[in-house]
Design a protein around this nucleic acid. Structure first.
Lengths: 203, 203
DNA sequence: GTCTATAACGGGATAGAC
DNA sequence: GTCTATCCCGTTATAGAC
């Protein structure tokens, strides 16, 4: 069947590219190299994915979509602020630890194409406040937490979570950590971030 | 004089490039375009700056160097933690507000060349903890502040400061802010960040 | 040391014929 | 879907002028 063939070539390209990107770094992998390794014609690759960047986006789309839904559900649930923050921070860092390329990739999209970037799904996943802002306001009015600008609080939360992954190589070099140690350090940020966020709004 | 001529071409290239980079975005500006607009031969441009990325780095080197020294002096001074954090946050955000391209540029360097990046001066400026960590430990032992992992605290501090500049276009689009409004929002983060950091270590 | 002209290479992207 | 030709762009090299 044609559709099976199509899917095979598409999938093969994405798998091959993913392996190469992780192994060598995105910028040290050529499109011709990907096509060759996948046993697929370069033109066909540009037929499915119009650009290398788009190929990269497709590769992460699935994992980003799944995790993004999880993250949004946490913020939109009926749990307490405290519980939401804790679950959000934990789930987000777990997600990024499994796919460390997501943050630099999304940031490069924002940087490269500032105008169109905000419309991309993978980008929106990184920034979705929704019902969380309202809850922060309501709880502040009830006196359960200190009044706080919801947008600023949300931006602070994702800053604390995401930025360390953007500067991971730098931190790793500066502190002389191996891969396991830097991974552990990022894990231990979970509680650090949670504590910092909650301390700032504790009534 | 020869040196004046040289400086003229060099400066003209840097000024022209700077304007184009800010106006169109780094990746939508070609090297031939820069040379043409500056009225300078492309070969000469490669004579002074060997690559587009190096040109970019040269453009920011001065401002980064000056501000970097200011920031380091704040952290290495003999002021209180409270005072240092306040001055550091304020000075850093002022610096980034004047040169909004610094953060995405440095992050792209880290992303592109993870191995060599940590050695670059412009990169090191963004991450220099030095004496600040010791002070955090000492103050915790004295009971003046809550005990905290100094590295985590420092990373949190620069995350809160820097990340919003990395996602500025995204935030601007999502909240529907014009240039003045987003600038104001970033200014008002100064106190937000300062309060959050101090609340997390208040004894 | 400053500057120009020109050619060429490699990589990403595009278009059209088949 | 495939293949070829072609283009743009960053980069390098060379040869030479002032």
């Amino acid at each position: 069947m044609d559709s099976k063939q199509a899917n095979n070539s598409r999938l093969k390209l994405m798998e091959t590219a993913r392996e190469l990107f992780i192994a060598k770094g995105v910028d040290r992998v050529g499109v011709r190299e990907i096509a060759t390794n996948a046993g697929v014609n370069l033109s066909l690759m540009n037929y499915y994915f119009q650009s290398k960047e788009n190929l990269l986006e497709q590769i992460f789309e699935d994992s980003i979509k799944n995790y993004g839904q999880t993250l949004r559900q946490i913020l939109n649930s009926h749990k307490s602020i405290d519980q939401k923050v804790k679950e959000y921070v934990y789930a987000y860092i777990d997600m990024l630890s499994k796919d460390p390329l997501i943050v630099p990739f999304v940031l490069s999209i924002i940087h490269r194409n500032a105008e169109q970037a905000p419309r991309l799904k993978s980008v929106q996943t990184l920034y979705s406040t929704d019902a969380f802002a309202k809850q922060l306001k309501q709880e502040a009015e009830k006196g359960n937490i200190k009044p706080v600008d919801p947008e600023q609080f949300y931006i602070s939360m994702i800053s604390l979570i995401l930025f360390p992954f953007a500067i991971k190589p730098l931190v790793q070099y500066r502190l002389g950590l191996n891969d396991e140690e830097i991974a552990l350090s990022l894990q231990s940020r979970k509680d650090h971030i949670y504590n910092m966020l909650m301390a700032s709004i504790k009534a």
